[in-house]
Structures are given as C-alpha cells and as structure tokens.
C-alpha cells in the first residue's frame, strides 16, 4: 500500500519532485532569512552594550524597537 502511494500511479517521480523542490527552497529561504535577522539583532544588541548603562536603560524605555530587540536577545541567551 505504501509502495502504491509512493508510486502515485506512475507519476510519483514528478509529484514528489515538485513537492520536494517547493519545500527545499522554502526551507532554504526561511533559514537564510532567520539567520540574517538573528545576525542583525545580535549586532544591534552589541552596539547597545557599548552604550553607558544609564543611557541604554533610558533608550530601552523610550524605544519599542530597542526593547523588542533586547527582549529577543535575552531569550537567545
């Protein structure tokens, strides 16, 4: 039954190849995008770490972007 399912009435090669290509390239784009996002989040957090503690606290309070990045950095670490 499994062999029959894999064969797909003789069209198995074409059907599985299509699905495999779609999922492979979608996964590649996903991992590349996520890696770039994490890289920029890390770099940004590093830049923030260079700032004096008081200044960092103040801008983290006033900027939602920075507090969001710091939150995801904390989750990572």
């Amino acid at each position: 039954m499994i062999i029959e399912f894999l064969k797909m009435g003789g069209y198995g090669f074409y059907v599985w190849l299509s699905f495999l290509i779609v999922f492979t390239f979608c996964s590649l784009l996903f991992y590349k995008t996520r890696k770039t996002l994490k890289k920029y989040e890390k770099e940004f957090a590093k830049e923030l770490d260079k700032l004096p503690a008081e200044h960092k606290k103040r801008i983290a309070k006033s900027s939602k972007v920075i507090s969001s990045i710091l939150a995801s950095k904390n989750k990572l670490s």
Binding site: F30, T33, L37, Y40, V65, I69
Partner: peptide, 15 residues
C-alpha cells in the same frame, strides 16, 4: 518571511 525581512530592515535603519 515578509515579517522577518521587514523586521531586519527596521533593525538595519535603527542600527
């Protein structure tokens, strides 16, 4: 993917 890319672009500007 769009949301992750958009967030990356915002971080690039903020950086």
């Amino acid at each position: 993917i769009f949301l992750m890319k958009y967030k990356t672009e915002i971080i690039k500007i903020k950086k």
